[in-house]
Simulated assay, not measured.
Amino acid sequence: MADSVRVERGEDRVVATLDRPDVRNAIDREMIDRLHLLCAELEAVPRVLILTGAGGVFASGADIAQLRERGAADARAGINTHAFRRIRDLPMPVIAAIDGYALGGGAELAYAADIRLGAPSARIGNPETGLGILAAAGATWRLPEIVGPARAAEMLLTGRVLDADEAYAWGLLNAVHPADALLAAAHALADRIVANDALATRYTKRALLCPDAAHPAVELDLQAELFERPEKHRRMTAFLERSKR
């Protein structure tokens, strides 16, 4: 299998770089298969995931040449949908570092991340209706959660593409960094995440992803487990000792 997704593995994080430069990192079936393999790895050994793209582009969208030939059965199979949901549900946080285009399926992959950083060149949007389809791999339910229903409707119904400043103002990007500092900023964010207790971080993400009806019971159950762990006592003792200095 070709390296359409280049993976660099560390002890506490993994960097996955979408790498199909000839088609601006368009997401094809092979890339989806690679993402599934990566998800299986991170489900077994949880680590922070940083998603980025090669060549100054995050992902220009789904591979239109493949998409054009797909029929009703392919649509119902949710080829991209299931991969992006799996990324969204990974145990540890996912950070998207977006340089250049994140369009269509590329935008939906970015929406699956917990945190999105962008370069000034970032361009994010869903032009699917102009191609005779809808954004069916997460945009219609994730985008309203991120930017609000009215702004999501504007983006999805008009095909509007946001530049970096607009995406930041709308809350779609958490921060904007120079392109040559973007990956370093993602790593700095990962540093802050991994300095915290890993299980507490995983449980916080789990609670964030739960439906409204699950609250507050889910937090109370997860907190009850965390309260009984030696790590809680160790960290709180260290905090109290620092406070005395």
Rank of each mutant, 00 (worst) to 15 (best):
L103A: 07
G171H: 01
L220R: 15
D114Y: 01
E43C: 03
L103W: 06
P21W: 08
L18V: 04
V161W: 08
E11N: 05
G138Q: 04
D89K: 12
E166K: 03
V5Y: 02
G148Y: 07
E8G: 02
R29I: 07
D63N: 14
M92E: 14
E225H: 10
R24Y: 14
S60L: 09
A113S: 08
I79Y: 13
A153M: 07
A65P: 00
G148F: 04
A238F: 02
R192Q: 14
H177G: 01
D180Y: 01
G130T: 01
A224M: 04
T52S: 08
A153S: 14
A207C: 11
I115A: 06
A113C: 03
W141E: 15
G53K: 08
G10S: 14
R151C: 03
R206A: 15
L51S: 05
L42Q: 10
Y168K: 03
T204S: 13
E154W: 11
E231I: 09
G132F: 07
E145V: 05
V57Q: 09
L209G: 13
D191W: 07
A153C: 05
Q66T: 12
C39Q: 09
V5T: 09
D165I: 00
V147W: 05
Q66G: 12
L143E: 08
A40T: 11
A179H: 09
R206H: 12
A188V: 00
A44P: 00
A186R: 09
H187D: 13
A186K: 11
L173W: 02
R88F: 09
A224L: 06
I64K: 12
D28S: 04
A62V: 14
L208G: 04
F227D: 15
L51Q: 06
F84Q: 04
A112V: 06
V161H: 07
V57A: 04
Q66F: 07
A217W: 04
A65Y: 08
L37Q: 14
D114T: 01
R9V: 14
A188D: 15
A185D: 06
R68Y: 11
T140D: 10
E225I: 04
A198R: 15
A167W: 01
E154D: 14
E154Y: 11
V23A: 10
L90S: 10
T237K: 13
A59Q: 08
